[in-house]
Design a protein around this nucleic acid. Structure first.
Lengths: 126, 126, 126, 126
DNA sequence: GTGGTCTAGACCACA
DNA sequence: GTGGTCTAGACCACC
């Protein structure tokens, strides 16, 4: 499992780990039921502490992406394709909703924001 | 100048202050060149510490929204309305573009993202 | 003897084993005095370790459901049906009484608790 | 704020702390909006580590009972009476549902469990 | 002063 | 070997 930690990233280390594992589960890189590296292994690989990895795994388990069993290990949850789709959408909704909130805080109106987004997609196509 | 601080807001106090001043400059409530209350005055009014207000003013000055003159006071920058509009739009574009990137990383297609955004605005209206 | 182990079950493996044997003794699937499979046999059958099965058998013996004779094997205790019923009821009473106590500590009245329980059973039927 | 930690309790320390604060919020001992002791204070008082208290506060915040603000402190959430009632009921439902599950695992049928509960309440009245 | 993050290391339960 | 809990202590951001 490849994970990249950056000191320049604003997010705390445990969140960088959790976010990247989340993406890999959602895009299928990590298959349902697949065993994840042990917290000790991953901590060693990332040159970080056991607790930091544990915290990332805890967050992922709480959100239903993985499950851990004492003495057995940590595994990707067995999520069906439609469930995965749902989770992806919820995740995306959260990201977009946050971004829109920030724009509103800048004083932009809903129409202006929609306009900007449409322009964004036009540029990508061109 | 009216500013409301909330303990329950997730943002730190200094950012609540800066954000609200920013909006008032952008929507014209504070005119270009207008004098802002002194750090001590505002701290007293908001029942908060001088340090917190100073941090807000510092951030605003760094971003070009206000400027301070030793012994004279603090003033809203002399920005024309179209310039202000430009600043807002550039910032908003950055925020939205980042969010869309994150959604793409999750495996969502452009159409799906646009759909989610449209739903977001429908909910807000309802 | 059929026993199913699940990685996704929250309970540790040894407890899954003990619980299922307990039920089979209580509902008569395993007759009083009947010989149980050896620890090694069962471990092999369940694709798990001897230690795990040993721990399950130890727990069951401590609670009086089975007994082991050196060199002979492990056997279901000779408990009469009414005795079994008594054991079950006493255990259940303890569990339920504890739960009700916790609810009372939350500030709920007896009637509210009874109401909640009745709803619980309605849902299970529906 | 009085909290009692017991080494004999099966629950981990952080959960003992969280559970007791939860009860005090639900029964009104801690008022909505009231400031809780700082994690350092409470850790000192309970002769435990900062991290253990932090973990308890984290869990409570995640469940909506309290909120914490960097530099300000930790506060009981402003929950209305009906909301509190709801939370109490959900909490109780969880406790009772767990207990019923355990009884079922013992091999008891729904009717038997209901019978035991009714006897429990009769005794309390007598 | 407050909370937020992280480290290095320990001991326990489970397999 | 695995994960679960806990300690003592550090540095940072915020007030």
């Amino acid at each position: 499992m490849y994970i990249h930690l950056s000191q320049e990233d604003i997010r705390p280390l445990y969140q960088q780990i959790a976010d990247q594992i989340k993406v890999q589960i959602m895009d299928g890189t990590i298959a349902p039921g697949q065993e994840l590296p042990s917290i000790r292994q991953l901590a060693q690989q990332l040159l970080t502490s056991v607790i930091t990895v544990k915290r990332a795994y805890d967050d992922l388990e709480r959100e239903g992406y993985i499950y851990t069993r004492q003495g057995l290990g940590t595994f990707a949850a067995r999520i069906s394709a439609p469930q995965l789709d749902d989770m992806r959408h919820k995740q995306a909704e959260e990201i977009l909703s946050e971004a829109v909130e920030k724009c509103r805080a800048l004083g932009l109106k809903g129409e202006e924001i929609l306009g900007l987004i449409k322009e964004l997609f036009k540029e990508d196509k061109g």
